[in-house]
Computed example of a mutant assay.
Amino acid sequence: MARKVILDTDPGVDDALALFLLLASPEIELAAITTIFGNTTIDHVYTNVLKIYQIVQRYLDANPEDMPRFPNLSREPRTILARGAARPLAGELGLAEYYHGPDGLSNISQTHPEFDLSQNSGENHPPLTISSKPAHEVILDALDQAPPKTIDILAVGPLTNVALALGKSPTTLGRARRIICMGGAFESPGNTTASAEFNFFADPYAAHEVLKAASQNVISLFQIPLDLTRRYVVPFAEMIPPEPDKNSLIQYFLSALLARPRRAHQILGHKDEQRMHDPLTAWFAIQHAEGDHLRVEDGWSVVRRVFMIEREGEWTKGMCVVDRRGTKETQGTNRSKSGIETVASADSSISANSSPAMTVNVVTSAPANSTFSKVLLERVFWHIKRKNAGSGDSDKCTQF
């Protein structure tokens, strides 16, 4: 049986690619999609999920022979969609519209009005069950109604919804088989500030609460940081044909979706390729749909890392702070307040409760980028014909 997955997401360009990948993956069953502010506002991200479902449905209505490509669109019961938090647990609201556009999907609502949901709301209603409950309650309901350790939570946005579920019922959240989160940066530079990855920057308080619970074994969690995801890329030329086919709705939509990030990469001086933060995290969930909740498949590796999350820094908000001093002090010790006090000499109960440090399963390596990109291109970008320079075989090549 397919593994049930709750996707907590803030589409977002790479979130959209991750959702396409999950819709096309028979290994998992999308039990619910819970939306969270982040790449843009909660209203936009919620609409973006509806828009993606509608576009896939409209494509399949015109091309019913491709229905097997999207097993998660026709499963019963239908995937539940719920609206989540509009703001972080504390602090200012920060969005990533600078990259994803004001609507989160490269501003295609303005540049490509044919994709505007409001103009097509009467056509092909997305095959989703709309919930009136807040996202964190939908998460808890799904876990409460299923046997323990049978549902994975895939969190690819700020961790606010997960933190709210944790605060309401840590025991119920602990029924999740595993929580897989994309977030944080260690040795890698940040992608929002010099030191912070966006999801942890957007709500460092939520990240702290969730990862602290993982450190205390309240929940089972795997963190996939920017250090790993930024190494997984697909050239834009592999995903955007020179002349996108307007008659192929998915191809035309994805080409429009990727246009703004491509321009942003040119401005920033990056290579002409899309970094696959959320799709790689989704691939981890797909590849680990079976087996024990602590097992890691061949090609992947996990390290237990000790660190703290900065929640208020002017320049370091959301930073994963690693104590590199190498002493026998409690991690994160501030000597100006506590003096020099080793773990052995301190009262252990006080140290455990007062230390901001946590120990978390961090995914540090994955199978080759070529293996990942092959899966993504075959499942999401199959509609782009690729020519083999030597043989003319269009099925085996990855170059136009």
Rank of each mutant, 00 (worst) to 15 (best):
A90C: 04
A90R: 15
A90F: 12
A90M: 11
G91Y: 12
G94L: 00
L95R: 11
L95K: 06
E97C: 07
E97W: 01
Y98R: 03
H100F: 14
G101R: 06
G101N: 04
G101W: 07
G101C: 10
P102C: 01
G104D: 05
G104E: 07
L105E: 10
N107L: 11
N107W: 13
I108R: 02
S109Q: 07
T111Y: 11
H112A: 14
H112D: 10
E114A: 03
E114H: 02
E114P: 00
F115G: 04
D116C: 07
S118H: 11
S118K: 11
Q119G: 12
N120W: 08
N120D: 05
N120G: 00
S121V: 14
S121K: 10
G122A: 11
E123M: 12
N124L: 09
H125R: 12
H125C: 03
P126Q: 11
P126R: 12
T129D: 14
S131R: 04
S131Y: 06
S131C: 08
S132Q: 13
S132E: 12
K133R: 10
K133L: 15
P134C: 06
P134H: 09
A135V: 09
H136V: 06
E137G: 00
V138G: 05
V138C: 10
I139Q: 01
D141N: 13
A142I: 12
A142W: 02
A142F: 07
A146W: 02
P147Y: 07
K149F: 08
K149R: 14
T150S: 15
D152S: 13
D152Q: 08
D152R: 05
I153A: 08
G157R: 08
L159F: 07
L159E: 02
N161D: 12
N161A: 15
V162L: 15
L164Q: 14
A165G: 11
K168C: 01
S169D: 15
P170F: 05
T171Q: 12
R175E: 09
R175P: 06
A176V: 05
R177T: 08
R178F: 00
I179R: 07
I179M: 09
I179Y: 10
I180V: 15
G184T: 03
A185T: 09
F186R: 00
E187H: 09
G190C: 03
N191Q: 05
N191C: 08
N191V: 02
A194V: 02
E197T: 00
F198I: 00
N199P: 05
N199E: 06
